[in-house]
Structure formats: structure tokens, C-alpha cells
């Protein structure tokens, strides 16, 4: 038992962090929200070059083998920078392509960043960013289909950087028995890690803000009421983190569901605290904080609501 990231995993996180810091993600996100995907696509390619999607792809299809721990490391960073796009959905798609013919057809391009895949989770009719995705997948009662494309119009999300699109019916039947459970597990793990990164960014930004914002002649971060909310935010995130990496190690649906509900609730609580402590400026679309605030709400419901995840945890117990 040695439950710590190793130096290579830390180095991978640091290199992604460097890449994303240089990418000026707030302006990429705002362009993406307006339907201008060019900056987002360029960033997608760089993320793929860094090997992120390859972490969900076997080596024989140009991937790095299934490496959920490294994938979680990567998605924490993607969340920290609120990177837009169907990142989780592309990972879920990779997990659906287990049959050799499908794997050969789709996975090399997915690993290389040439495929931006989206799909609707089983209980939803909406796929994320169908207007930007290159590959649209439908999970229908008769199996996995390659949908002809997104239906219009897309519906706006509470997170302006996410657009929810119904998919057109029909299309090629790719597999009558796709591994949907496995895809759901990968999607939930990636969402949990992404939420953890979103929560950490919210905490970091709010700590920086309350250190410099003064009222009554002192930084508001010196007030105990402010400190204690941030301490609670820190506690919730620090106890979500081991669940995320523990789940990445076991990949059991119950562990992943526990990580999903805990990380998403910690991130959402971080968002509430961040909004409150920023005051009115945090309530504006203009303030970059909004890019994380709205994502925390969206991730909480994506790929399994808190109660669905709790059900999975209890159902798995004897």
C-alpha cells in the first residue's frame, strides 16, 4: 500500500498545468460559448498530443493502455482550467469501442485528437457540444448507433460553455451490445476528477480574492466567518481527492459513484462559497469566476445525479 501519486504522475500533472496556463483558457471558453470553436479545437489537439485521450485507449490502437489514475490526474487539470468541450464524452466513447473492428476504426483517431466524440448518457436525450463534435453516438434500446449528427437547435446549459444537443435518430448500428456500464464508469471517473479540479480552482481564486479585498480597513480573509467557510471548502475537497484516486485504482462502479457524488458536491459547495465571498462581482458573467461557478453546477448532474450515485454505492453492498 502506497497511496500517493508517483513522481511521473506529478510531472504529467505539472506539464498539463503548464500547457493550460499558457492557453489562456478564459478567452477560449468565452469563444466556445459564442459558438466559435477554433481556439477550443486547437487546445483539444494540444491536450491530445499530451496523451490525455490515449490514456483511455489500448496500446494496439495507438493508445497508452487503459490508465485511469493518469486519466484522473489529467481531468483534475482540465477542470482546474475549465477546459470546454466533450472531454468526458470522448473518454466514454473510447470505453464503448471494445469490439476489435470498432476499436480499429475509431480509437487511433480518438487518441490522436482527430475525433471529438459526444454521446447522450443513457437517461438523457442530450449530448454535450453536439455542434462541435465530429462523431455523434447514440445509445438506443437496440444498441450503439453512429448518429447522423446533431438535431437543431441546441439548448443552452446553465454553463454557457456547454451546449446540449439532441441527436438525430437512426444511423449505422455499430454494436448491439456495447459495454455501457464500463463507459459509464469511465465517464463518471473523468467527471469526478474534473469536478475536483473545478473545486480547487474555485477555492484558489477565492482565497486570492479575500486576501486582497479589504473592508473595514482589513482584508476580508482575516474575518473568521470568511475563514471558516474556506476551511470547510478545503476539507470537503481534500476528502474527495482520495475517493477519486482510490476509484481510479479499483474502477469498481461503487467506488467511482462514491467519488462522483463526493467530488461534485464538494465542487458545488466550493462554488456556493466562492460566489458568496466574492459578493456581487462574482455574480456577474463578466468575472471569470463565472466560468467555474456554472461548470460546478453542470457537472453535479452530468453522468449521474448525486442520488443515483448514492444508490449505486448502497446497491453494491451485500
Amino acid at each position: 500500500m502506497r497511496f500517493l501519486l508517483d513522481p511521473e504522475q506529478h510531472a504529467f500533472a505539472a506539464s498539463l498545468n503548464g500547457l493550460l496556463t499558457a492557453a489562456d483558457t478564459p478567452s477560449v471558453i468565452r469563444d466556445w460559448s459564442r459558438g466559435d470553436h477554433s481556439g477550443g479545437r486547437a487546445l483539444w489537439s494540444r491536450i491530445a498530443e499530451a496523451g490525455v485521450f490515449a490514456l483511455a485507449v489500448p496500446e494496439e490502437y495507438d493508445g497508452l493502455g487503459a490508465r485511469p489514475v493518469e486519466l484522473a490526474v489529467a481531468f483534475v487539470e482540465l477542470g482546474r482550467y475549465a477546459v470546454p468541450g466533450p472531454l468526458v464524452e470522448t473518454v466514454a466513447a473510447a470505453a464503448l469501442f471494445t469490439e476489435p473492428a470498432l476499436a480499429k476504426r475509431f480509437l487511433p483517431s480518438l487518441a490522436a485528437g482527430g475525433t471529438m466524440a459526444t454521446l447522450a448518457p443513457m437517461d438523457s436525450q442530450y449530448a454535450l457540444d453536439g455542434d462541435a463534435a465530429t462523431t455523434h453516438l447514440s445509445l438506443t434500446p437496440d444498441g450503439l448507433r453512429l448518429a447522423p449528427g446533431p438535431a437543431t437547435p441546441a439548448r443552452p446549459s446553465l454553463d454557457p460553455a456547454r451546449r446540449l444537443t439532441p441527436l438525430l435518430p437512426g444511423g449505422e448500428l455499430l454494436s448491439p451490445t456495447p459495454p455501457t456500464e464500463q463507459a459509464l464508469t469511465w465517464a463518471r471517473l473523468a467527471t469526478a476528477a474534473q469536478a475536483l479540479g473545478v473545486g480547487e480552482a474555485l477555492l484558489d481564486r477565492t482565497v486570492a480574492y479575500v486576501r486582497q479585498r479589504t473592508q473595514f480597513g482589513v482584508p476580508i480573509g482575516s474575518f473568521q466567518a470568511v475563514k471558516h467557510r474556506l476551511a470547510d471548502t478545503k476539507i470537503a475537497l481534500e476528502f474527495a481527492r482520495p475517493l477519486v484516486f482510490g476509484a481510479a485504482l479499483t474502477m469498481s462502479p461503487a467506488d467511482v459513484a462514491a467519488a462522483k457524488v463526493t467530488a461534485c458536491e464538494a465542487a458545488y459547495a466550493a462554488a456556493r462559497t466562492a460566489l458568496q465571498l466574492h459578493g456581487a462581482i462574482g455574480y456577474t458573467a463578466e468575472c471569470d469566476l463565472s466560468l467555474w461557478l456554472t461548470k460546478a453546477r453542470a457537472l453535479r448532474g452530468a453522468w449521474g445525479s448525486p442520488d443515483e450515485c448514492r444508490d449505486v454505492v448502497l446497491s453494491a453492498r451485500a
Binding site: R211, V218, K234
Partner: peptide, 17 residues
């Protein structure tokens, strides 16, 4: 404990308890 977390882990300034 929350004061300790805020001041030593988050780096917030000391203030009146």
C-alpha cells in the same frame, strides 16, 4: 481547527478570533 486550516494551509491573514 478551521482557523488553523485557513491560516496555515490556505495562507489567510491572522485576525481576531
Amino acid at each position: 481547527q478551521r482557523d488553523i486550516i485557513a491560516e496555515r494551509l490556505l495562507g489567510l491573514p491572522k485576525g481576531r478570533r
